[in-house]
Amino acid sequence: MKISTPEKITEHLHNALSKVGSFQSCAFLDYPAHPNIGDNLIWLGSILYLTNVMGTKIKYATSKSNFSATTLEEKAGNSPIILHGGGNLGDLWPEYQNFREYIISTYCDRPIVILPQSIYFSNSANLKKAADIFNRHPDLTIFVRDNRSYTIAIDAFDRCKVFKAPDMAFQMTGLPKIPDVNKSKSSILYHCRQDKEINEQFLANILEIPNLLVEDWVSYKWKFGHPDKRLSRYGSQLFRELWQKGLANPSEWISRQKWQYLHPYSPVFKQIDRPSIHQYSWSLMHSGIYQLQQHKLVITNRLHGHILCTLLQIPHIFLPNSYYKNESFYEEWTKEIPFCKFVKDTSKIKSVVQKFLADS
């Protein structure tokens, strides 16, 4: 069956997740306490699924750095644990995998669900270690986002329940675009990640596209300050909230206030443990939408640049990352989307750009 619309992808998401049944309550762990907008989109989609579709009360929500076994017990008792999805099941981002393995090895007395992940291990010993921990858990369910991850999981995590599902951000299919965004008639954005997942065959200077605006998620420009130094943290927050997210672009600030307080989804976050962190993620989502909506065409090597453009029906070109994550997700779920093209040959990017511009 062709999966040619975001709505159809959402149907696949719901069909897959329904296999775990429903929980009356849960603890939702590994909140993305960093400015990567993509990870925050996953978190938000997960919240909306757990609360609006599954009818689950999230009694405890926390990041890995703020996790407390005592608080988990006090707030959630022996409720099932839900672990955040994304692209960090493996050894590329070890701090998240270490936390996941700790939780799974510690809490064998309750069901644990890992929401849709891409799996990548460069070291077979690390995969074996993860498999030993995962397979010892009596009730662990793992959702994966693509066929290559599914093959790894079925082989390595053979005592776990493994299912394929799209990314949790597709729970937000149908979101309206943000009104009153000043959209350029000709601008092209290269939404380019700058971390260890970048594929260096696709650096901006290699693309040879004139007047190309190159930037990562806008949130990476914001000032955050050192988390252990209170004065630095508070000063950075003041500068960020008053200037970078406010006075420097007043029209976006006004739009964000409407999004924060008038959007029908906003009240959902007040009903969950630690509402301020979810509301902050909601604000980050506005920033991501606002950033991408300004451009006639987007080129992106970020999976959630691709997913957000798909949700918003923004024409875009999708490029590989450092391993198979982007291409495998595209082949599994989004290759029939008519306003997107995955390009893995740098020599073809210019002609695909010209075709998109001619068709618009």
Score class of each variant (00 low, 15 high):
residue 181 V to G: 07
residue 342 F to W: 03
residue 15 N to A: 12
residue 160 C to Y: 02
residue 70 T to I: 15
residue 348 K to F: 09
residue 78 N to I: 05
residue 316 H to A: 10
residue 116 P to S: 11
residue 77 G to A: 03
residue 114 I to W: 00
residue 225 G to D: 01
residue 32 P to D: 15
residue 2 K to D: 13
residue 125 A to I: 04
residue 311 L to R: 15
residue 256 R to L: 14
residue 127 L to A: 09
residue 250 P to C: 09
residue 86 G to E: 00
residue 189 L to M: 13
residue 307 I to T: 15
residue 188 I to Q: 02
residue 201 Q to R: 14
residue 71 T to P: 01
residue 296 K to D: 03
residue 140 L to C: 05
residue 57 K to G: 14
residue 295 H to V: 04
residue 147 N to S: 15
residue 142 I to Y: 00
residue 112 I to L: 05
residue 249 N to W: 13
residue 82 I to K: 05
residue 184 S to H: 08
residue 235 G to F: 06
residue 52 N to S: 10
residue 48 L to W: 10
residue 4 S to W: 13
residue 62 T to W: 11
residue 205 N to V: 03
residue 290 Y to W: 12
residue 228 D to P: 00
residue 154 I to S: 04
residue 157 F to D: 07
residue 324 Y to N: 13
residue 10 T to W: 03
residue 283 S to F: 13
residue 141 T to S: 08
residue 166 P to Y: 01
residue 268 V to H: 05
residue 263 H to K: 10
residue 264 P to K: 05
residue 197 E to Y: 12
residue 123 N to K: 12
residue 300 T to M: 09
residue 29 L to Y: 11
residue 92 L to M: 02
residue 318 F to E: 14
residue 194 Q to Y: 05
residue 301 N to D: 15
residue 42 I to R: 07
residue 238 L to P: 00
residue 292 L to R: 02
residue 67 F to A: 08
residue 169 A to I: 06
residue 326 N to S: 15
residue 127 L to V: 04
residue 207 L to C: 04
residue 287 S to Y: 05
residue 92 L to S: 01
residue 337 I to R: 08
residue 288 G to F: 00
residue 203 L to T: 06
residue 40 N to V: 12
residue 116 P to T: 09
residue 19 K to A: 13
residue 54 M to F: 14
residue 208 E to I: 04
residue 80 P to R: 06
residue 95 E to N: 04
residue 135 N to I: 00
residue 204 A to P: 14
residue 149 S to Y: 12
residue 299 I to H: 09
residue 48 L to N: 11
residue 50 L to E: 12
residue 23 F to S: 07
residue 207 L to V: 04
residue 260 Q to Y: 11
residue 358 A to Y: 08
